[in-house]
Nucleic acid binder design. Sequence first.
DNA 1: ATCCAGGTTGCCA
DNA 2: TGGCAACATGGA
Length: 298
Amino acid sequence: MATTNNNEGVWLPAPGGINLAMTLESGQVFHWQAQGAGFTGVIGRCGVYVEQRNDGLFCACDKADIVSHYFALDVDLEAIRATFPEDPVLREATCYCDGVRILRQPVWECLATFMTTIQKQVSHIRAISRALRSRYGDSVDGGFDGLFAYPAPAELAQAGEEALRACGLGYRAKFLARTAEIVASGGIDLEELKERGDSEVRAALCSLPGVGIKVANCVLLFAYGRLSSFPIDVWIERILRGIYLKKSRRKVTPQVMADFAARHFGTYGGYAQQYLFHHARCTWRNQHKLSGRKNLIR
DNA sequence: ATCCAGGTTGCCA
DNA sequence: TGGCAACATGGA
């Protein structure tokens, strides 16, 4: 499928389109940096430069397979959108997020990173990721100065709670240190979980310190490729309570929200969630400021 | 200065 | 079960 332009680079088509910048800045991954016409980042242990060209990605030939898998270029966004319910709120978010893809991130990296997203702004999360990578991660080869792989569980376990705290993790340092230790010592096999069903993976992840239902669902979605997984954070909760479940007679509990989401958004609820989340963050910000205080909804 | 940030945990009734 | 405070740090 890929078209080789020359010995150096290759163009990879993205069925249903891709918006590289928005994909990398939509709050599912936190370490990519804009550089020139594209972005540099690390996929696993591999430094990568990618550039959007029309409805596809351009990258070095020897990175094609890695890039293709990471950006899920085998997934047809058109087909996913076709499964969405007819719903004006989702339609607007989907339109706004045209070309945003759910990545396939390495499991440990995704799990550890989302443990650090608890009660943190995206800019903080990026800073923490940068600190952890540069202090405890291996540098990647191939002329990518300043790029580091995400530290392995053993490396973070060895670093210890206090050292992690020094990376700006706050009270999350204890969680990450303990979970890193469990993973490093084989107390849980993150790779083996790929063979298990959603609920089993979710339960296994939730057994780790610092991992609750929201983080677990993020890992299911962004690392295990479970595209129906629907993480409910403060933004999504506002949308569900304030719009979709506004007239609900029942008390809107987390279970009620999860059940509604599964039923309403369907097989690719995770994509719907990401679009709703990113659209809300980008467009409600102004209203949030203008309204002077407090959530509009809730 | 006060509030909030892609929540989780432990404790209480 | 369901409600609620504590938990660190930093930017708006």
